[in-house]
Amino acid sequence: MKRLFYYLGCFLLPFVLVFLVGILLPPTPRAADTSLFTSLKKDSLLKNVPSRRLILVGGSNLMFSLNSQILKDSLHLNPVNTGVHALLTLQYMLENTIQYVQPGDVVVLIPEYEHFFKDYDIGTDELLRTVLDVNKSKIKLLNVAQVYHLLPLVPRFALTKFKPTEYFGTNTNPPQYRRNTINQYGDETLHWTLKRPYFAPYKITAEYNPVNVEMIKEFQRKVEEKKASFIVSFPAYQDSSYDNSAAKVEMVEAVLKQKFVLAGSAKRYRTVDSLMFDTPYHLVKTGVDRRTEMLVEDLRETLNAER
């Protein structure tokens, strides 16, 4: 038995060393040029944009589908678009945002529908890369379950540091998913000029997961404690994806309606397929403006009602 453990130890030692070095090495040039790194700029916006602010929290449905200039001009608030990627999980997004909320802020949460279904509260490679590559100090924002689920992904993450393609050759990452494509508010604007690629509509198949609703309630409590306002709204969602998961989308809406102040409705933000860019949540420029104008109307109405 000792022999087995001795040889197993010797066999696994190089792996452990490679993994450790991989974690400690700085991000590769390829990794450092992805949209995940926009969160550095977004954190800086959260820190430095003066009051009174409109903080938009959610996944890439915000980053790729909002024109914050319109929001600023219409609502006279300073927008901060914090959206990066839905798979960063609501837990992480909310924990990160709450650190920066100030009195008088208007916090608008627009989660993707998938956030309310199983597995979207756990996180995957994107979250791991964010806490190990983008900003290691953010590890503290993860909960125990997330750490447990992310641990098996560490070896693959570490090995990417030793891939030659991460350092040399052409960057095949689509241009809109790179680091320097966001404007001063955090909106991704490069894709406004790009051609729409093909993508398949989504279908939500996972089971409902009530965890995130409770998490949002807790976030709301913390936001209100900081004398800021809290509103929930809906993402622009592709028609065919909506049809594929209509019952689930409407169930999410019903749950949210019971517990939060809502701006707009799920149906209102349904968007024709021709206005979608490369996922059911990313809009082309016309769609971005249309969606932003709807959001302006809904926020105006909700804020007026709150007063």
Binding site: F11, P14, P155, R156, L159
Partner: peptide, 17 residues
């Protein structure tokens, strides 16, 4: 060992969800 390392490397690198 090199054979095992190669297999493990492929598994780690190309695993999906």
């Amino acid at each position: 060992w090199l054979s095992y390392y190669a297999i493990i490397w492929v598994i780690i690198n190309y695993s999906t969800k």
